[in-house]
Design a protein around this nucleic acid. Structure first.
Length: 889
DNA sequence: CTAGGGTTAG
């Protein structure tokens, strides 16, 4: 070695300076070790200057063990210079607690620290998030009168920023008598780290106004703030300044530019910057690779990775980004390859990387590999546990998830994410008890104020049927976001409190939250449920304003809303305006036609859909057969039923069979329907027999009706509607014992009857008529009017359908009758409160009964009005004594 | 003082 030879020739003086220079320029750790041995051989290892340089240099090569042995060997006892060096070296290598314990040792041996001691100690406090130590160190800085030191001040700003205590950081900053560019940069990056983009920019502009030239760190932080704000104009201005200062080629700056433009417009500008970069480092590659991953262009990110491998060694972050891409692509093969690469690169112990591996393997469907990674981890954090718990939940292994949760508690503290996942699991399971237990648990841990947790709680309570508790959590929230509102609105819909849902929408607006697509999609079904055309239109307007009208799911729901609100015309309008239509769009239109008895239009639409190359699914076939059935198109309906299997290889499901039974029996082909049922390959359920039974009732075929009734009772259905149907059959036959036993079994099984009700909207107000609502306004007048109408109807030839005049009835049934007639109350009320000649629109939650159907026909003729009645299934337009359904319903 | 990575809710 040339240097060595030279050294021997030199005087002691030149020897010292030569070693100093050699130490400063040592480029590898091997060179450093050689120099170290030389220093020992020459007996210079007690030299404070060389020891300090060695300590720093070893730290530079990430070899804190050697730093430490140099420190011990130098027997430093009371030399603060060496203590500063070692504390600094340890901090530099992330050994914060070791650094702090050495600092404590200086106090024990009563060694006076100097201004050079504190910056590293403060950095160590920041690294450990040790608030207590931080306080005592800061106090000491005050006591020793170091608080105006520039470097200490800078370190303090950084520390408080890392503690997320921006106020304290700001205070230190404002009180500094002298600041340098690092002070400004630290504060700006502190605001950045906490997402306070505007504050970061504000500090930057204050800095600029002083006329100081920012450096590459400043610009990098400012670019990040622009990216965070999504402010393209601001970003372009900064970009211009960077060009002007001439630091565009600086790696830090160009990486900042790259990262900012990657956030703006789907990577187009980002890629351009990347391709033009003169100097790229690992961060540049990683930014681009992650950028692709983040927008879902996983293939692109892997392609770039392959390109990178040839010229640059991927680091831990590259590897983790690629592992995520593998997970999203489900590419197990490549994932395993990258995993091996990660191990050989020595990154196996990185917790984050292992967490990503757990996820990657799970996404690729290899649960075993996930478990292996998890159990092989020497050190787990809460994300590790959460990830594994989530794997089990996604896999449906709920017991395993709970077991792991219990184990987790013995290792690390569960965090808010843990509770969010487990709560959503209990929602899935409908397990209210578990949900409540978790709620108590998380309250104790102080996660009550976490917005995601609260959102999940709102959802959990609502879906488990506890709307009251759901609202309680909702009202107690201090801050709400768009998801909170969407969740509570969906909850209202779930608990069928439509009006509350609508009120929540307006409350949301007054609190300044703009509804989004999800809001629209959750509230629109309310409009169909309520048949609230006005609200529907209002929301439609909102959708236009928000620019969501071209969204396919929104359009699909709008078609449904308008059709259920009585406006087939509007449904067609929405349909025509939609640029993209999927099978759901067409199905919505076909169902709409079906509800209005427009069977021919439905058939035409179905043909157009096929011609447009859209492949119908099983729902589309339900819609078209339903439409045929409601228009008496028996041949066509049967044809579709056969075609779904023949042309589209769709195996008919029970609902298709039910539609066909409906189709045949509605047209009076009861025997054929019964044969069809007996020949079907699936076991007929209550929906199948129920369809036949409804038709029997209409055609008065008691023989089949009784046979079918027995079948239904055998099936023991959960839907009260079927028991009511059967009980009506027995009542009509005068078999009261059976009627009573059915009633009893409904009660013992705890089934609730759907109370029938009707409602209508007059001048933006909804009036509801139904069970127990005798005391509405104008009750007397309504009854009087109904009496008059009854007289007029009798003159026209109306005879009440005696089949439904039941004897032996209790209070319950009397009310049922009243409910059955709730649409009559609504119609009479409407007649009283609208101008002669105006059409009326009445909504009903159940199917319209035979007698009411007849009565409404008469009324439409007597009062010469168009009466539109929407029941649970479809629309009936009564006009001049006839109904649009042609008595198919 | 700098850039890039993990689990969660409607």
């Amino acid at each position: 070695m040339k240097t060595l030879r030279l050294l021997h020739e030199c005087s002691r003086q030149t020897l010292f300076s030569s070693i100093s220079r050699a130490l400063a320029s040592a480029a590898t750790s091997t060179q450093l070790h050689k120099l170290h041995s030389l220093i020992i051989t020459l007996g210079l290892h007690h030299s404070v200057v060389f020891s300090a340089k060695l300590i720093a240099k070893y730290a530079h090569f990430r070899d804190p063990t050697s730093s430490f042995s140099v420190f011990r060997l130098a027997s430093p006892s009371n030399n603060v210079y060496l203590w500063n060096s070692i504390i600094r070296a340890l901090t530099h290598n992330g050994l914060f607690s070791e650094a702090l314990s050495l600092y404590s040792e200086t106090q024990r041996i009563r060694l006076q620290p100097d201004t050079y001691t504190f910056p590293s100690v403060i950095n160590a406090c920041a690294g450990l998030l040790d608030f207590e130590m931080a306080k005592s160190v800061h106090d000491r800085v005050w006591e020793m009168g170091f608080s105006s030191d520039l470097y200490i001040g800078n370190a303090l700003i950084d520390m408080y920023c890392r503690f997320n205590d921006l106020d304290k950081a700001r205070k230190v900053f404002e009180e500094m008598p002298l600041r340098d560019v690092v002070s400004w940069n630290s504060l700006i990056s502190g605001y950045n780290a906490n997402g306070y983009w505007n504050e970061a920019l504000e500090i930057y502009y204050r800095f600029r106004n002083l006329g100081v030239v920012p450096d590459s760190y400043t610009m990098s932080s400012v670019l990040r703030a622009c990216g965070g704000l999504g402010s393209v104009e601001e970003g372009d201005i900064i970009h211009g300044l960077i060009e002007k200062i001439g630091i565009k080629t600086d790696v830090i700056v160009s990486n900042g530019l790259l990262s900012m433009y990657c956030k703006f417009n789907g990577l187009v500008d980002g890629r351009r910057i990347f391709d033009k970069m003169v100097l790229r480092d690992a961060v540049s590659w990683n930014t681009m690779i992650c950028g692709y991953s983040q927008v879902g262009l996983y293939e692109e990110s892997i392609k770039l990775f392959m390109e990178m491998v040839n010229q640059f060694k991927p680091d831990l972050l590259t590897i983790t980004s690629i592992l995520q891409a593998c997970g999203h692509l489900g590419d197990l093969e490549f994932g395993k390859y990258v995993h091996d690469y990660m191990i050989t690169s020595g990154y196996e112990c990185d917790i984050t990387a292992s967490n990503i591996l757990i996820n990657m393997y799970a996404k690729c469907g290899n649960l075993l590999a996930s478990q292996e990674v998890f159990s092989g981890m020497k050190c787990k954090d809460s994300v590790s546990w959460n990830s594994m718990i989530n794997v089990y939940i996604q896999n449906g292994s709920f017991d395993e998830a709970m077991k792991l949760f219990k184990m987790m508690k013995t290792d690390v503290k569960p965090d808010s994410v843990t509770y969010v996942m487990l709560l959503s699991m209990s929602t899935q399971l409908g397990d209210l008890d578990l949900g409540k237990e978790l709620h108590c648990d998380l309250a104790k841990m102080g996660f009550n104020s976490n917005i995601v947790v609260s959102n999940t709680l709102v959802d959990m309570y609502a879906k488990c049927g506890e709307m009251g508790d759901s609202l309680k959590v909702f009202e107690n929230m201090k801050a709400r976001d768009i998801i909170t509102w969407n969740t509570i609105i969906a909850s209202c819909v779930h608990s069928e409190d439509c009006n509350l849902g609508l009120r929540m929408i307006s409350r949301m607006r007054t609190e300044g939250v703009t509804p989004d697509m999800a809001t629209m999609l959750s509230i629109l079904p309310v409009c169909s449920l309520l048949a609230a055309k006005r609200q529907g239109k209002e929301i439609h307007g909102c959708i236009f304003k928000l620019g969501l009208e071209s969204d396919v799911p929104v359009g699909n729901v709008l078609i449904e809303v308008y059709s259920k609100c009585g406006s087939l015309r509007n449904s067609f309008q929405v349909f025509k305006l939609m640029k993209t239509k999927d099978v759901v769009t067409w199905t919505a239109l076909i169902s709409a036609c079906g509800m209005y008895g427009e069977g021919k239009k439905a058939v035409r639409s179905f043909g157009e859909m096929e011609a447009a190359g859209i492949v119908p699914d099983h729902v589309a076939f339900v819609a078209i057969i339903f439409a045929c059935s409601h228009s008496g198109l028996v041949e066509e309906g049967l044809n579709y039923f056969h075609r779904m299997k023949k042309d589209y290889k769709i195996e008919p499901r029970i609902e298709h069979y039910a539609c066909v039974v409906d189709l045949l029996s509605r047209s009076g082909l009861l025997d054929k329907a019964e044969d069809f049922i007996l020949s079907m390959p699936l076991k007929p359920d209550s929906s199948i027999w129920g369809a036949l039974l409804s038709a029997c009732r209409m055609s008065g075929d008691t023989e089949i009706a009784e046979r079918v009734s027995e079948r239904i009772i055998e099936l023991n259905p959960d839907d009260t509607g079927y028991y009511v149907l059967v009980s009506n059959v027995y009542a009509a036959l005068g078999k009261w014992d059976q009627v009573r036993s059915i009633r009893k079994s409904i009660k013992t099984r705890g089934l609730k009857k759907d109370p029938g009700c009707s409602w209508m909207e007059i001048q933006n107000k909804v009036y509801v008529f139904g069970t127990g609502t005798k005391f509405f306004e104008q009750f007397e007048e309504v009854n009087k009017l109904l009496g008059i109408l009854a007289g007029l109807m009798a003159k026209e030839g109306y005879i009440a359908n005696l089949q439904f005049v039941l004897h032996d009835i209790d209070e319950d049934e009397k009310r049922d009758i009243l409910c059955g007639h709730s649409e009559r109350l609504a119609i009479a009320f409407g007649l009283l409160n609208t101008k002669p000649g105006t059409p009326l629109q009445v909504m009903k939650n159940l199917r319209v009964c035979e007698d009411c159907h007849t009565v409404t026909k008469y009324i439409s003729k007597i009062v010469q009005r168009e009466l539109l009645v929407r029941d649970a299934n479809r629309f009936h337009v009564f006009k001049d004594g006839a109904c649009s359904c042609g008595d198919y319903w």
